[in-house]
Amino acid sequence: MGTIETQVAVVGAGPAGLTLATLLRERGIACVVIDKFDRDQLLARARAGFLERRTVQLMDRLGLSKRLRTEGLPHTACEFRCDGEVVRLDYADLCGDTPSFVYPQQEVVSDLLDGYESAAGATLLGRPVVGLGTERGLPVVRCADGTAVRAEVVVEAAGQYGPVRAALPADAFTEYDVRHGVRLLGVLAQTPPFAPHTVYGQHADGFAGQMLRSPEVTRLYLEAAEDETLDDWPEERVWRELDARLALPPGALRRGPVFDRSIVEMRTRVVEPMHLGRVALVGDAAHIVPPSGGKGMNLAMADAADLAAALGRHFSEDPGGDVSEVLAAYSRRRLADVWQVQEFSHFMLHLQHGPRPGTPDAGYVEGLRRARLFRLRDDPAYARAFLERYMGPELAPGL
């Protein structure tokens, strides 16, 4: 207990918070990472697994990509299935041989946390944050055990329901929150993938998809009705619907134990601006994208890289300057990227999910969806532009 003084307090030890802390420490900026979860809890959270090119390059630059490159799966193609048509897009054929990777988020967190703590980075894990105050003109993060962390900058990296974000006045932000009317059953199964790449299946009964996780574990998705719960999806139905919706021959998808199941609502959220005074928002605290394009973790880590560079310049070149202006500039830069990723994720959402039967203009909307899909099949320039966005940009210089 007591008060800790630092330059930057980061609330949240996920990919964004740990990336930011690692980069700040590399630049000689004092930082403390706070999270309500302890180490074991952090590493037990199975989440996303698709790493864009810029994310892989960032891990390379941090010197933390050894396991990623030896244990991760190079992601070299994706495939769409629709009415017996298979549209397979190969990255190397169209965009060169720089792959993205599949590497589970909890492993990214493990690598980042090991790297940060091995460099004597300060953490307060298992310490729930219960408030945000001000002392001597500086923000103070208060923990449930009585510890206070006073910093020049506080960063909310604990997601959309993070305690710092909750303590900020709602009327200081414009928030866009869109529910797309699509719900997915997501399962993790102890089974090898039936194809060595991501597969998206369109079917009259709804979407089905395979996302890689490891050679032994596969993430699988099935579109669920609005009123369905997990109880409506016993394992037998899961496997039966996957076979049917992906048009798989018997035995192609080997059945194995399902050890994680959840219902995911396809939702979009953007908060503007991504700062208030001396508080900055990164990752899910500022934006959520549907999992359609696999962009959430990548966008969060890109936020962290940009903010670390901006704070590095501030503390080394102009420590007496107005840090709120630094954060305002960060917000403007990141929102430009956020909206581009939102647009791509929206495109992917409507490429993968057809209209509900009986909805207005359903036939017209379905015709547009198929036109986009078959243009990907028939137009190499269109497919190349799509894959460049799917794989994500290169890491920007200076980050």
Score class of each variant (00 low, 15 high):
2 G>L: 12
3 T>M: 15
8 V>S: 00
8 V>L: 01
9 A>Q: 02
10 V>N: 02
11 V>I: 15
20 L>V: 01
21 A>Q: 02
22 T>D: 10
28 G>N: 11
33 V>Y: 07
35 D>H: 07
37 F>H: 12
38 D>V: 07
40 D>N: 11
44 A>Q: 14
48 A>E: 02
50 F>I: 12
50 F>M: 10
51 L>Q: 07
58 L>Q: 12
60 D>N: 09
60 D>H: 07
61 R>Y: 02
61 R>I: 01
63 G>H: 04
64 L>R: 09
69 R>H: 12
73 L>C: 10
77 A>W: 06
78 C>P: 01
81 R>M: 10
82 C>F: 14
82 C>P: 01
82 C>Q: 11
83 D>L: 14
85 E>D: 14
88 R>H: 08
91 Y>N: 11
92 A>C: 04
93 D>Q: 14
93 D>K: 15
98 T>A: 13
108 V>T: 14
109 V>G: 03
110 S>W: 07
112 L>R: 06
116 Y>L: 13
119 A>I: 02
122 A>R: 15
122 A>W: 11
123 T>S: 12
124 L>F: 08
127 R>E: 12
127 R>D: 00
130 V>E: 14
131 G>S: 04
135 E>G: 05
136 R>W: 01
138 L>E: 15
147 T>Y: 05
150 R>F: 08
150 R>K: 14
151 A>I: 07
151 A>M: 07
153 V>M: 00
158 A>N: 13
160 Q>C: 07
172 A>N: 06
173 F>G: 05
174 T>I: 04
175 E>A: 13
178 V>K: 09
178 V>N: 04
179 R>A: 12
182 V>Y: 14
183 R>T: 11
185 L>T: 09
185 L>S: 08
190 Q>H: 08
193 P>M: 03
193 P>G: 02
199 V>T: 13
199 V>M: 07
202 Q>I: 13
209 G>T: 08
211 M>V: 13
212 L>S: 09
215 P>N: 03
217 V>W: 04
218 T>N: 00
218 T>A: 04
221 Y>E: 11
225 A>D: 13
236 E>C: 01
241 E>T: 08
243 D>T: 11
245 R>H: 12
247 A>L: 11
249 P>R: 05
249 P>A: 05
249 P>D: 03
253 L>M: 11
257 P>R: 10
258 V>M: 09
261 R>F: 01
265 E>H: 13
269 R>G: 02
270 V>N: 04
275 H>S: 11
277 G>S: 07
277 G>C: 08
279 V>F: 00
284 D>L: 10
289 V>Y: 10
291 P>V: 08
292 S>I: 01
299 L>V: 12
303 D>A: 00
305 A>C: 00
312 G>D: 00
313 R>W: 08
314 H>T: 04
321 G>K: 05
321 G>H: 05
323 V>M: 04
323 V>E: 02
326 V>Y: 01
328 A>C: 03
329 A>V: 03
334 R>N: 00
335 L>Y: 04
337 D>Y: 09
340 Q>H: 08
345 S>K: 03
348 M>V: 13
350 H>S: 01
355 P>I: 09
356 R>K: 14
357 P>N: 07
359 T>E: 15
360 P>L: 08
363 G>M: 09
366 E>A: 15
377 R>V: 04
378 D>Q: 13
378 D>Y: 03
378 D>G: 05
380 P>S: 10
380 P>M: 12
384 R>I: 00
384 R>E: 12
384 R>H: 02
390 Y>W: 15
396 A>W: 06
